[in-house]
């Protein structure tokens, strides 16, 4: 059974249709890379799954629950699906520990002691247990992104959406973030990544989705997609990398 079911999803910004009927099913434990040129709708698709964009047509369901635009439904959805952003978006007025604890205590009403234990555990998992009391501004971009991952993990989501999470990083910091994602994948976390890291997509992902002009243009296991692209668009895209 699919964990995430996207059926004929449509999304327009004004007159421009950005997603022109996307159908995608994600099984539990799958690691999916969404690749494609900028403007192909990759990020928009991801943001729709998390309810950050309202959709114009089609359905999204996560673990059997339909996505609906009202606050209780959105909240229920977001407790199942975490999201990591390109710009990290850590809360600058809270310490690293505070960042990872906040939503546990205010959304899940977890007692502080338990929330702190969970925060320390998740920060350890991303290799930043020792920076619990640091401020986000004291961390490197790579470390900030790892905190963002820990923050999402602390809510114990069943799937994680990663929106170009290494694109804002200096090249030497990309590896440390990808290493964390690699571990999550190995632990069986369901992941959907919008990425430009083709090497990473090839090594880690179970399936690659190539988007072109708002549609799923080609989809398949990474070996197939990268080695023998069927459509000229994908051939051109892969050739450029």
């Amino acid at each position: 059974m699919s964990l995430i079911e996207i059926t004929d999803l449509r999304k327009s910004f004004g007159e421009t249709e950005v997603l022109k009927g996307i159908t995608l099913n994600v099984a539990p434990g799958e690691v999916i890379a969404i690749i494609g040129k900028s403007g192909s709708g990759k990020s928009t698709l991801l943001r729709c799954i998390n309810g950050l964009e309202t959709v114009n047509g089609g359905t999204i369901s996560v673990a059997g629950a339909q996505l609906q635009a009202d606050e209780p439904h959105l909240k229920a959805l977001r407790l199942k699906v975490g999201m990591i952003f390109q710009q990290f978006n850590l809360f600058p007025h809270l310490t690293v520990g505070g960042n990872v604890m906040l939503s546990q205590t205010v959304v899940k009403k977890t007692p502080t002691v338990e929330a702190e234990a969970m925060a320390r555990k998740m920060l350890d998992r991303v290799g930043l247990g020792h920076r619990f009391d640091a401020w986000p501004s004291e961390l490197s971009g790579g470390q900030q992104q790892r905190v963002a991952i820990a923050r999402a993990l602390a809510m114990q989501p069943i799937a994680l959406l990663c929106d170009e999470i290494t694109s804002a990083l200096d090249p030497e910091l990309v590896a440390e973030v990808l290493a964390v994602v690699r571990e999550l994948a190995a632990d069986g976390m369901t992941l959907i990544l919008v990425t430009h890291e083709m090497g990473f997509a090839r090594d880690v992902c179970s399936r690659v989705v190539f988007m072109h002009q708002g549609r799923v243009h080609e989809m398949g296991p990474p070996a197939e997609i990268f080695a023998s692209p069927k459509t000229p668009e994908l051939r051109q895209f892969v050739g450029k990398q």
């Binding site: 606050e71 975490g82 978006n89 809360f91 007025h93 906040l102 899940k108």
Partner: peptide, 28 residues
């Protein structure tokens, strides 16, 4: 805007976003 989106993606509602994320930063 990223602060709104990050807090929303963590499941916070409007009032929680305001109280714990937006207003503390706006006050500064």
């Amino acid at each position: 805007r990223g602060q709104w989106e990050a807090s929303a993606s963590l499941g916070m509602g409007y009032v929680q976003q305001m109280r714990y994320v937006i207003l503390p930063q706006a006050m500064r």
